[in-house]
Every structure is written in C-alpha cells, then in structure tokens.
C-alpha cells in the first residue's frame, strides 16, 4: 500500500474540509461579490480591503487571532459556549471557520470580476422584460458569471487544500478531526519519516497539478467572451 491509513484519513479529511469550505463560501461569497461589484458606496474600498486581507496576512496572524477569539475567553468562544456548542479550536468546524476566512478572497474576487464584466446592459434588458431582480440574478447573471464561479470554486478548493499555518495554530493535530494532509506531511518530516513524507507530498503535488490543469485547460478562449 502506497499510503498508510493515517495518510488516507488525512487526505479524506482535507477533501472534506475543502469541499465544505467551498460550499459555504459559494453561499457567503456571492452576495459579498455582488455588492462589491455593483455598489457605488464609500464602503466598497474598506470592505474590498477586508476581503483581500487574507492574501496579505501571514496565516500565523490569522491563526493566532482565531485561537484567541474562538477560545473560551474570546468573544466568539463566549458566544459558541453560550449556544452550548463549546469552543471551536481543535474541532473540524473550527477549521472550517478558519478556512472560510482564509479562502474568502479566492471566492469573492473572481466572482466579483465576473459580475463586473457583465455590465449594466443585460440587467437593464432583463428589467425592461419585467424580470424581478431575483429572476434576473438567476436567469441572467448566474449563467453569464458561471465561468467566474467555476474559477472561484476551484481556486477556493485548492487554496483550502494547501492550508497549513492556520490549521497548525488552531488544529491541535487530532487524527480524523483536524490532522489534514499538510499537517500530516509536516509531522512526517519532523519525525524524520522522510519516506512517508515523500509519498504523501507526491500525492499532494500530483493532485494540485491536476486541479490547476483542469482549471487552465477548461477555461474557454477568453477572446470570445
């Protein structure tokens, strides 16, 4: 067997984390992207900057603040305890929350670009045909922005798979719960188990290449758009 049981578990966990994060960000990111694409408000600048922050911040900063705010004495931690959910660090759902922040720009920015490139005319045309805003969104905007959504989803998924620093800070390295592939590789290297580190790393390398290959090969000729 090429991979150990622990490695397989880590891979499955990583894929679960990336899928759930992508799904949540599709729901959360789309309205943010829409607002950013359409607004003339003064707040566009500050909110756009906040969305882009995880691109710039070291994951250790994000992980550190998440650990403090989601911990038992932090505001988020107090809230989750009040809800009877306990605290989020060292849990799978804690990682999901961290990943949603961490991958936010990878969802919002491509979708926002897609929305912006649609322009006003299709929306005005739909409005003259008496389509409701919601109808317009689903029957005009979504199909036109679909390439943006696909790009954003693949990037979000891939970026979450590649997450390491945040997981290291808030994960606690629990098998089947928070020990994702990147942490597992780090563990193998730290434990001087280079054979296992190589195998799992090779799997990650091939996987990442295939994902990006799919992204670039799929992307239709941009000149036609």
């Amino acid at each position: 067997m090429l991979l150990s049981e622990g490695d397989l578990q880590a891979i499955v966990l990583t894929l679960e984390l990336a899928s759930i994060t992508t799904a949540i960000l599709l729901v959360l990111g789309t309205p943010i992207a829409w607002w950013l694409a359409r607004t003339k408000s003064w707040w566009k600048g500050p909110l756009g900057a906040v969305v882009a922050l995880p691109l710039v911040l070291p994951p250790s900063v994000l992980g550190f603040y998440l650990l403090l705010t989601m911990g038992p004495h932090g505001p988020v931690g107090q809230f989750t305890q009040w809800l009877g959910l306990g605290t989020l660090p060292f849990t799978f759902w804690g990682l999901v929350v961290g990943s949603v922040f961490y991958s936010l720009p990878f969802m919002v920015q491509p979708v926002q670009n897609a929305f912006e490139s649609i322009g006003d005319r299709p929306l005005e045309a739909a409005a003259t045909l008496r389509a409701s805003p919601l109808d317009t969104f689903f029957s005009v905007v979504l199909p036109l922005a679909l390439p943006g959504f696909i790009t954003a989803s693949i990037l979000t998924f891939a970026h979450t798979v590649g997450e390491f620093g945040v997981v290291l800070m808030i994960g606690g390295n629990i098998p089947g719960e928070t020990r994702v592939a990147s942490v597992q590789i780090y563990d193998h290297v730290e434990a001087l188990d280079y054979g296992q580190a190589h195998r799992l790393s090779a799997v990650m390398l091939v996987f990442s290449f295939l994902v990006l290959l799919a992204l670039y090969a799929w992307r239709p000729n941009p000149k036609k758009v």
Partner: peptide, 17 residues
C-alpha cells in the same frame, strides 16, 4: 490536543483552549 512543540502545547493551555 497536540502542539507542534512544547511551546505550542503551552500556548494551547495558556489561552485556555
């Protein structure tokens, strides 16, 4: 919960997590 090293183990306990 496993810290990468003893520093992180301390950090987990010190933050009350």
């Amino acid at each position: 919960v496993t810290g990468e090293n003893i520093t992180q183990a301390y950090q987990f306990a010190a933050t009350g997590n």
